[in-house]
Simulated scan of single mutants.
Amino acid sequence: MPDWTIGFDADDTLWHNERFFRLTEDRFAELLSSHMEGEGLRARLLEAERRNLGLYGFGIKGFTLSMIETAIEATEGRVPATVIAEILAMGREMLAHPIDLLPQAREAVEAAAQQGEVVLITKGDLLDQERKLAQSGLGEIFDAVEIVSDKTPATYLRIFARHGGRHSMMVGNSLKSDVIPALAAGAWGVHVPHGVIWELERAEAPQGHPRFREIASLGELPALVAELGRRA
């Protein structure tokens, strides 16, 4: 049995993701600028995303459908077919975008694989997450891959019980999805801040929690795992 099971988030932890959503959102606002000013449109889009999470889940496809819904609302049903076609093209472009690894991502996963079992734990569309993992070149390093519909304490309890290290840890950029529910499941939660974060992923840091840690970059992870192992 390994000492550690170390879970890694994917989007904006191992590779860039949110910045492509922001760029597409900017293009969407420009596309609809004659119907609604930018900030109002962005607020409507965010509300549509929030409303649709339970139906479409996380990822680009749900985002694209939310853009279409927002365009229909903003134009009071008069949105031209050419605009719908442009929104669909933007979604396809996002789905085809090449993967851009974050600094020290490969090194961090390789080092963690020497310290325990490493598991990719990511939420979102199955096909898109599989595509990104394949293009990242990191797939062969992971002992297991878990693509889930959402990240809850029950999700982490199930995954860490199945992979069975004496100690478990989740590493990610989202306090809401990667850290707080992992702590609730009894694991260590390691926050690696990313400069761009989706509004629906914002949460307060659980300062003072004995199993919460924050590191400036993935390069600090191996030393942290070693330190916690010595203290365990």
Rank of each mutant, 00 (worst) to 15 (best):
F160G: 05
D125A: 06
I87V: 15
A113H: 12
R92S: 07
E86M: 09
K132E: 11
Q114M: 14
Q114D: 15
A154Q: 13
E110Q: 14
A108R: 12
I87G: 07
A85I: 07
M94P: 02
T155E: 06
E73R: 08
V119E: 03
M94F: 07
E93M: 14
L101K: 03
R78N: 13
I159M: 09
K151V: 05
V79M: 08
M94Q: 13
A81D: 13
I84W: 04
V145F: 04
D125E: 14
K132I: 10
L102K: 05
R131P: 05
E146W: 07
V119D: 00
G91T: 07
I87K: 05
L95F: 09
Y156Q: 12
M90C: 08
I87H: 06
A161V: 11
K123E: 06
Q135P: 01
Q104T: 11
T82V: 14
H97F: 09
L126H: 12
Q129M: 05
S136N: 06
R92M: 06
V79R: 03
G124W: 00
F142P: 08
A154M: 15
E76F: 07
A85T: 14
A111G: 10
A161N: 14
R162C: 10
D150S: 11
I141D: 02
I99Q: 02
G124H: 00
T75C: 02
S136H: 06
M90D: 11
E140M: 10
L126C: 04
I147N: 00
S136L: 04
D100M: 12
A112H: 02
G91M: 11
T152I: 04
A144C: 03
G124R: 02
I141A: 02
F142M: 11
E107Y: 12
L102I: 13
L138R: 00
Q135S: 10
